[in-house]
Amino acid sequence: MAANLSHAATSGFGPIGRRLLVVGIILLALLVTLAPFFVLFGNSLRPADEFLSDKSGLWPSQLTFEYYAAVLSANGTTFRILLNSVIVTAATTVIAVTTGCLVAYGLARLKLPFRLSTIIGLTFLIVRFYPKITIAIPYFVLMRDFGLRDTYAAVVIAHVSMTLPIVVWLMLAFFEDFPKQLEQSAMMDGCGILRRFFSIVLPLTVPAIATAALLTAFFSWNEFLFASAVGPLNAKTLPVEISGFITDKGTVWGPMSAMGTVIVLPVMVLALIAQRYLVRGLTAGAVKG
């Protein structure tokens, strides 16, 4: 590839050709990423009869908003499910980020014997490695036995257990890189460990915490498997609701697409707003500033 590019640079293409090549690659990447969303959005506006025709294109020939009207006015069901999703996501994010930050700070600062900090840290990472379906059933059994089945608590507990490791891992890297002298300075200024954490460390790790919070929120908002296992009805979230459009009488494409768009939009908007933080947070610690 590099050889081809340098060949292109020295002969034939010239600088304009090279720029076109780069733009082409970027467009291709965008196409691959965005095509599904395009189809999803198109389908959410496509009249019902067009779904069955083999002549219909990627974009519908006529637009209809009936699915949105139907989905958004279904006796408040959609709003209730939307509210479920918001509650579960918010609770998961707050609990996972708060606990994760405290755990990570403790691991980074306490001098535990036998490299316990590393071992505990690694354990947190390893729980991310196996297929989630393997513990979906145990979770179902546990929640049933605790009498928590189909409650917000069940879904939130499952989501926190999935996201806590990411938060701990991300924040651990941050706290370990945190300038030691700043904390020593705070100690000399009279701060105990809590004051030090809340007055000095926390305000300076906001980008990392924002990143951790966003990753957690995205995970919880999108998660399907555990939500469907432990919260199938009362605590039903949007992804679980979507799966309900696949029925034994066939797939209800239109409403499903409308609902899909409703789920994706907030995530996209949030990601756009937060992209500056996200990039900074994920790459922090990689290069010493």
Binding site: P179, Q181, L182, Q184, S185, A186, M187, M188, D189, G190, C191, G192, I200, P203, L204
Partner: peptide
């Protein structure tokens, strides 16, 4: 602990609170 000693320290890198 340092917070109870009432000693003041000037650090090599100054360690000013950036925020």
């Amino acid at each position: 602990p340092p917070r109870l000693r009432n000693f003041a320290m000037v650090f090599q890198g100054y360690a000013l609170y950036p925020h």
